[in-house]
């Protein structure tokens, strides 16, 4: 059986917000180390991988590995019934077709209980090769959100170029072009810092609508990392104490 007690429903709500536009159904793979989810969008252009560490829960027990097939729209509805600071327990029996969610109010005696139907999901899990990336950019997640939202007003794609100068995001639209250069900052201890580690110049083009989707994870984590090598998928990584959410996005190819 699974029993996982989270300090705050808000964490799950934010996670769901960060993946529900990409994926409709997904297996939450539970084992004694925690909960993992890996899913691709319908067009197989983007992949999201989530990990929640067992140690990050107030209480965590999972006797044997079990997949919980979840419709994310349904889970979003059930989570809307929780206050952000409700203590939240997820429970499922072995071979169960129901996920039980209990919300305990922090400052009152309210206890709410919901049962959600689980489903069988055939998911084609992919092996993600260990990659040495040629460039790693670390920046405030809110800045990343801003850049991709701004440029998505102009065009469908963005070219991301990393050089010694900094990281440049450029988009060409029918009516307007735009580019944003973010220079490396001196003080990399600052939470607003932009850090660039680079072995070689990289330049890649991606679809902005996916990046806008990924950037919703900014609510989980103040920093984001972009990992890039020429001609391989971009990795956008948000690490938030209790685990991580990572997105992979296949590049667009030349004109």
């Amino acid at each position: 059986m699974l029993e996982a007690k989270l300090a705050e429903a808000g964490t799950l709500k934010k996670l769901l917000d960060a993946i529900k536009e990409l994926v409709t159904d997904a297996n939450f793979e539970c084992n004694e180390e925690g909960i993992n989810l890996q899913a691709m969008d319908n067009s197989h252009v983007a992949l999201v991988a989530v990990h929640l560490e067992a140690a990050g829960f107030k209480r965590y027990r999972c006797d044997r590995p079990m997949p919980l097939g979840v419709n994310l729209t349904s889970l979003t509805k059930v989570l809307k019934c929780a206050k952000d600071d409700d203590i939240t327990t997820l429970k499922a029996a072995d071979e169960a077709d129901v996920l039980n969610l209990v919300y305990e109010a922090k400052n009152s005696d309210r206890i709410a209980e919901y049962d959600m139907k689980l489903m069988d999901i055939d998911s084609d899990t992919l092996g993600i090769p260990d990659t040495e990336y040629d460039a790693r950019v670390t920046m405030p997640s809110a800045e990343f959100t801003r850049v991709v939202r701004d440029l998505s007003q102009l065009g469908e794609s963005v070219r991301i170029e990393v050089s010694k100068e900094g990281v440049r995001f450029a988009s060409e639209g029918e009516a307007a072009n735009g580019s944003v250069l973010m220079k490396q900052t001196d003080d990399d201890e600052d939470t607003q810092a932009i850090t660039i580690e680079m072995n070689q110049h990289v330049s890649l083009t991606f679809s902005l609508k996916y990046l806008v989707n990924f950037s919703k994870s900014a609510s989980l984590c103040p920093r984001v990392q972009l990992m890039m090598s020429n001609d391989v998928p971009l990795l956008v990584a948000y690490d938030f104490g209790q685990g991580y959410i990572r997105y992979y996005l296949a590049p667009k190819i030349g004109d």
């Binding site: 691709m40 067009s43 197989h44 252009v45 983007a46 992949l47 084609d124 899990t125 992919l126 092996g127 993600i128 090769p129 794609s157 083009t205 679809s207 391989v232 998928p233 992979y248 296949a250 590049p251 667009k252 190819i253 030349g254 004109d255």
Partner: peptide
Amino acid sequence: KGGQKSLANFFGPP
């Protein structure tokens, strides 16, 4: 205009 690659071009079965 360029085309969109699929992740299947890069990631294989586990």
